[in-house]
Amino acid sequence: MNKLFETENILLIMRYVFVISMTILSLYPIFWVLSLAFSGSQSLSITELPADPSSWDRIRAIIPWPENFSIQNFIDVLTEQQFGRWLFNSAVVAGATTVFGVFLASTSAYAFSRFRFPGRGVGMMTFLVSQMFPGTLMLIPLYVIIVGWLNLENSYIGLVLVYSVTAIPFCVWMLKGYFDTIPKEIEESAIMDGASQAVIFWKIIVPLAKPAIAVTALFSFMAGWNEFILASIFMSEEQLYTAPVGLKFFVGEHSSMWGYFAAGSVIVSAPVVFLFLYLQKYLISGLTSGGVKG
């Protein structure tokens, strides 16, 4: 009995070591971004190394820490341009993309998972295939559709449409896969109770699929949140730009204000972190039993 606990413990410690080392690896480059953002200057500083550096000197050199600590970069980013307005635009666009995309994807995914109809396989493949054509050549045709035909220049809707379409295929496939794991018996018993198809979908399926919906919501949000090129081409009013467009102002032809860019990036990633903090409660099961599952 004692021995078992020991192997358990060793495994647990191994897990800790793994998770902690991965966390350090994933945070390390971000610390460089942070150190640049808080340095108050525009260039990453190159660390002082004496003529004959010892290992200790080198270790000190690789720790990202700004020489001077300043929040000037943040102040400049937020005041020089209407960055707040752009963040708001991004939030509207990414938020609407999330709502719109997840809604459309979940209904489609439900149909793919629960109904057998002609064209089902082809339909599923269509969603997948749509991701396969390289986007670099899509710019002009998309401009023709969104601005030329639909007249959606300077409108949030144009961006929401395009972003949803980029996000939907993954969402459909992910949700369909997840719906497949929900046993049919639950619905069948609901039908016996006289529930309509819509009730089943909204009251039974959607609540059970919360983890998958959380994942797809995060994904859809990111699809709209960090996109730059389409937003800068479809929007021709400065107050309608999104945050990534605003960030790119700091990258010029020959020169770039990397300090501002880093500070802006930190600001831009904050909402994503908060969204994830909110959504992650759906991604925790731990040891609680899965309720109706199984």
Binding site: T181, S285, T288, G290
Partner: peptide, 9 residues
């Protein structure tokens, strides 16, 4: 997300 579909039972 996928792991949440597996019941601990």
């Amino acid at each position: 997300g996928g792991l949440q579909s597996i019941s601990t039972d």
